[in-house]
Simulated assay, not measured.
Amino acid sequence: MEKSLSNRSMKYLFILLLILIICIIIVFLVSKSSNYKKQIIFFEEYLKNNYTLDDATIKEFVKVFEILYDEFPYVTEYVYPIELLAIGIVETNFENVKGDSGESLGYFQIQAPTYWYLKHNYPEFYQRINFLEPWYWDNIKERPDVQLLTSILYLYDIKLRFGEEDAYSIYNGGSETYKDKILLRLNILENEFKTFNRR
C-alpha cells in the first residue's frame, strides 16, 4: 500500500515537473520570438529616424526579416536584426555604394565571390525572393532585399562554421578592429533598443 502511494506520488511529481519544464520552454520561445519581432520594428524605426532611406527600401529590408522569421526560423536563432543594423552603420552608414575599389557592393559591402558561395549553398533563400541573377552592381543596386539577405546568410554561415566569437572579424576579412567597431556599435544599439522597449 505504501509502495503504491509512493509510486503514485512519484508519477504526479514527474508529471508536474514535466509540465513545469514545458511551460518554461514555451515562455522562453515566446520571449525569444517576441524579441526578434521587436528588433524588426526597432530596425525599421531606427532607419526611418536616422537615415534618409526611402520607404520602399526600408520595407524591402523588413520583408526579408519577416520571411526569415516565418519560413526559415533556424536562421533567426543565429542572426538578429540589431546585428545587421550595426553592420550597415559600420560598413557604409546605410549608403548603397561600391567600396574596396568596386569589389564590395551595397549597404552591407558584400563581394561577388561571397554571393556566389552563398547562392550555391543556400539557393532556396534566393529563390524565395526571386533573385537568380549574377551579383553585378546593376542587378543588385536596386535590390536592398538581396543585399540584406546575402549579409544575413553570410553572418549565419560564418557563425555556423567558425562560431559566434570570431564572426564579426571574419565578416570583414579577419579584422579585429572591425570586430571592435561592430561590438561598440552593438552596445550602443542594444542600449537604445532597451529604451525603445520601455516605450
Rank of each mutant, 00 (worst) to 15 (best):
M1T: 13
M1K: 14
E2S: 13
E2L: 15
K3I: 14
K3L: 15
L5Q: 13
S6C: 09
N7C: 09
M10E: 15
L13M: 14
L18G: 10
L18S: 12
L20R: 10
I21N: 11
C23Q: 12
V27S: 04
V27D: 02
F28G: 05
L29V: 11
Y36W: 10
Y36H: 08
K37N: 08
K37C: 09
I40D: 08
I40M: 14
I41M: 12
F42R: 08
F42W: 07
F43V: 01
E44F: 03
E45Y: 09
Y46L: 10
L47N: 00
T52G: 00
L53Y: 00
T57Q: 01
I58T: 05
K59G: 02
F61C: 00
K63F: 08
E66Q: 15
L68Q: 09
L68R: 05
D70A: 11
D70H: 10
D70N: 14
E71S: 15
P73F: 06
V75D: 01
V75S: 02
V75P: 02
V75C: 05
E77H: 09
Y78I: 15
Y80V: 06
Y80M: 13
P81G: 06
I82A: 12
L85K: 05
A86L: 03
I87V: 14
I87W: 08
I87H: 06
I87G: 12
G88N: 08
E91K: 12
E91P: 11
T92H: 06
F94V: 03
V97A: 01
G102K: 08
E103D: 11
S104N: 10
S104L: 07
Q109K: 01
I110E: 01
I110Q: 06
Q111P: 07
T114F: 01
L118D: 03
Y122V: 11
F125K: 03
I129H: 04
I129C: 07
I129S: 11
F131S: 11
F131H: 07
E133P: 03
P134N: 15
W135V: 13
W137Q: 09
W137H: 09
E142A: 13
D145T: 13
L148I: 11
T150D: 06
S151I: 04
S151L: 07
S151Q: 06
I152C: 04
Y154D: 04
Y156S: 05
L160D: 07
G163S: 07
E165F: 06
A167I: 05
A167W: 04
S169I: 04
I170A: 02
Y171L: 04
G174S: 09
E176W: 00
I182V: 14
I182Y: 00
L186D: 07
N187C: 06
E190N: 14
E190R: 15
N191P: 06
E192G: 05
